[in-house]
């Protein structure tokens, strides 16, 4: 019933028959999801509230494991292995698949320490190496100019949009393969939003990106592929221009034309 296109590019992640049930729930929140995440491209997930897009996103870095009782079923293949297996090293996984959250989440420490956090977790202690990598990350996140003079200042002094870029810098400092964005601009003003969207498009050269957004126009602006979800099902996945102009599924068309929210 669902229409999932076959992508020509290499796949960064492949999802096969994935179910997910929250602890204590009688029915799964995600049902039999199968989809590819293209390498070095931006894939967007859209759908009404409660459709499961964030639940799906948080499965890729196994955030659900922080809260006991959740159950996965099926496969998520990354770098040739199924990351849903018990023996998966989650600390290593999370340095390879990073996440940006709905609200900027700067840690209570300096700007420098924020960006260096992931590097220090990995054991990098060499001061000049840290400095170089922090600088590179801040540059790649397009926030070097605003922060180079105040790296020792508390990160909470930055504006909302700047803090979100800081969080992006923090995530890319560890050089992950994939970046997961969970509605990254929902707490930001239009101008900051624009900046982040531009950044996402630039970043795909280096990482594969999966972004959840409740804003269809944003999905249309930044993504190469878009997946539409509804009530736990992946209804359709296609090239963004094609999905928005000539959706294959009726449900997709109804959502896009605003027949339901």
């Amino acid at each position: 019933m669902a229409t999932i296109i076959d992508i020509p590019e290499e796949k960064a992640i492949e999802v096969n028959n994935f179910d997910f049930t929250y602890a204590g729930a009688s029915d799964p929140s995600l049902k039999n999801i199968s989809m590819p995440i293209a390498k070095n491209k931006v894939t967007a997930l859209i759908g009404p509230s409660g459709c499961g897009k964030t639940t799906l996103l948080r499965s890729f870095n196994r955030m659900h494991d922080l809260y006991p009782g959740n159950a996965y079923n099926g496969e998520i293949i990354f770098e040739g292995r199924n990351i849903l297996q018990e023996k998966e090293d989650m600390i290593k996984l999370r340095t390879q698949i990073g996440m940006i959250f709905q609200k900027p989440t700067a840690f209570p420490m300096s700007i420098f320490d924020n960006v260096a956090y992931g590097l220090r977790l990995k054991g990098i202690k060499n001061k000049s190496e840290l400095r170089d990598r922090v600088e590179k990350a801040l540059k790649d996140a397009a926030i070097w100019k605003e922060t180079s003079a105040r790296l020792k200042d508390d990160a909470n002094g930055l504006s909302g949009g700047q803090q979100q870029r800081l969080c992006i810098a923090r995530a890319i400092a560890v050089e992950p393969e994939v970046l997961l964005f969970d509605e990254p601009t929902s707490a930001l003003d239009p101008i900051s939003t624009q900046g982040i969207e531009k950044l996402i498009i630039e970043l795909k050269e280096k990482v594969s990106i999966l972004i959840v957004t409740h804003n269809m126009q944003q999905a249309a602006r930044v993504s190469d592929y878009t997946g539409f979800m509804y009530l736990g099902d992946l209804v359709e996945l296609g090239k963004t221009e094609e999905l928005f102009v000539t959706p294959a599924e009726k449900l997709t068309e109804e959502y896009i034309t605003g027949k339901f929210g």
Partner: peptide, 12 residues
């Protein structure tokens, strides 16, 4: 969300 950010970077 702040705690999750640290976990997401591979923190214990």
């Amino acid at each position: 969300i702040l705690k999750e950010s640290a976990y997401a970077l591979g923190g214990t």
